[in-house]
Simulated scan of single mutants.
Amino acid sequence: MSQASLLIAALILDALVGEPNWLWSRLPHPAVLMGKCVSWLDHTLNSGAKKRLKGCLAAAALLLGGLCIGWLLSFLGPIAEVLIAAILLAQRSLVEHIKAVAIGLGQSLAQGQKAVSMIVSRDTGEMTAPQVARSAIESGSENMSDGVIAPAFWFLVAGLPGLIAYKMINTGDSMIGYHNDRYEEFGWGTARLDDLVNLLPARLTGLLLAAVGGSLRQWPEIAADARRHRSPNAGWPEAAIARALGLSLAGPRSYDGEMRDFPWVNAKGAKSSTGYSILRAAEMLWRAWGLALALLVAFALIF
C-alpha cells in the first residue's frame, strides 16, 4: 500500500474510533510516553550553564529518537502502521473536547470554564462566557493543525518516522517551549524546531478552513491577521476560522494571573462568541477534515 492509502485508512479509523477510554485507561498513551521522554530531558539537562545549547541537544534527541522509533515500528507492517498513525491523529477527540465546552456552557458558566480548562493553558477561573467560547474555538483551530493536518502531512512525507518525530517535537514544545524563567533558554531549540515543522501544515490548515468556510476571497486579510498573531503558525488556522465565522478571536488573556495584551484576530468581527459558535466551529473542523480526506484520495488515485 502507498503512504497515501495508509494515511486515508488511519484518518478514517481515527474519525470512527477516536480515543477509546477502555484502552487508554489500561495502557499508557503514546503521548504520555513522549511526555516522559521530554520530562527526562528537562530534568537531566535543564540546569547549570549553556542552557540554550543543552536545549538544542534535547530538541535533536527528540527529533532523532522519533525518527528511529518510527523506523523500527515501520517494520511491523502496514496494518500496524495504520493503527499507530490513527492513534497519533486526533480529529475525533479534538472535536469532542471543544463540543464538551459548548455542553458545559449550556449548563453553567462554571461548567464551561471547567471544560475549557482541560484544553487551554491560560487562566480560566475569571473568564466570561464569550471568552470561554473563544478559547474553545481557538484551541480547536490550532489543534486541527497540530493534531491532525501536521501529523498527517509528515506521515505522507516520511511515513511513521516523520509522524513520530513530529509528535515528539510537538510534545516537547507543549511542555518546554515557554517564555518563562525555566524554559526561555532551554526550550528555545524545541520551540524553533516546532515552528519549522508546522510552517507548511499551519498554512495548509488555514487554506482548508478558509475553503470550507467560504472565506478564500479574504485570504489577504487572513494572512495579515495571521502575521500579527503571537505565534508564527497558530494564527493561520485561527484567522481562517475567525473570518469564516465572523468572529474576533485571540486578544487579551491571562496566564498565571498576569494579563497579556495580545492582538485580536479579525478585530472587526463579533466578540460575543457562544456555545452555538463552538458548535459551528466543530462543524467546520469536520468539513475541513473531509476536504483534506478528499484531496488525499485524489492524490492517491493520481499518483
Rank of each mutant, 00 (worst) to 15 (best):
M168H: 08
L285C: 04
A102D: 11
G162F: 02
A239T: 09
A288H: 04
E185R: 02
L16S: 15
D261F: 05
L279P: 02
L76P: 11
T44Q: 14
F262P: 03
E238W: 03
L204G: 01
R217H: 15
G112D: 08
A158S: 12
S254D: 10
L94W: 01
A129D: 06
H29G: 02
A80C: 15
C56F: 08
P252R: 01
L6E: 12
D146P: 07
W40H: 12
I241A: 00
K99T: 13
G35L: 09
K50G: 11
R230C: 12
A191F: 04
A152T: 00
V157L: 14
V120S: 03
Q131K: 01
G18H: 06
P220I: 07
L291N: 08
A15K: 09
V101D: 00
V297D: 08
P263D: 08
S272V: 09
L67M: 09
A239P: 04
V132E: 02
H29A: 05
H179W: 12
R217M: 05
L109P: 08
L89A: 05
T171I: 03
A61D: 10
Q113W: 07
W264S: 03
N143D: 13
P201N: 06
S5D: 13
R253T: 03
A224I: 02
P263E: 06
T274K: 05
G48T: 08
L6H: 12
N266I: 03
V116D: 00
Y276P: 10
I302H: 14
A298N: 10
P78H: 02
G55K: 01
A165Q: 04
A250C: 13
E283L: 13
L64G: 13
K268V: 14
L23D: 05
S277N: 12
R122S: 01
A234T: 09
I137G: 08
T128I: 13
I164M: 05
R192V: 13
L63G: 01
D261T: 12
L247W: 03
K114W: 06
L33R: 12
G18W: 04
L53V: 15
G213H: 00
K167M: 10
Q107T: 14
E138L: 05
W154D: 10
G251W: 01
M168T: 06
L64K: 04
D256A: 07
A158E: 10
G177F: 03
R92Q: 12
S93C: 14
P130L: 03
N180L: 01
A136R: 01
S273F: 05
A234M: 13
L41R: 00
K271I: 13
T124C: 14
H97P: 02
M127G: 04
A281Y: 03
P78K: 03
K271G: 08
A80R: 13
S248P: 07
A292T: 07
L7F: 11
S135N: 08
P78E: 06
L6D: 12
R243A: 07
Q113T: 06
T124G: 04
L208R: 02
L160H: 02
L200I: 15
L72S: 13
S108D: 14
Y178K: 04
G104E: 04
A85W: 02
N233G: 13
Q111S: 14
A282V: 06
A152E: 00
V120H: 01
L295F: 10
L296Y: 11
V32K: 14
A100G: 15
I12R: 11
L63V: 11
G48K: 06
R52I: 08
P237N: 06
L293K: 11
R253D: 02
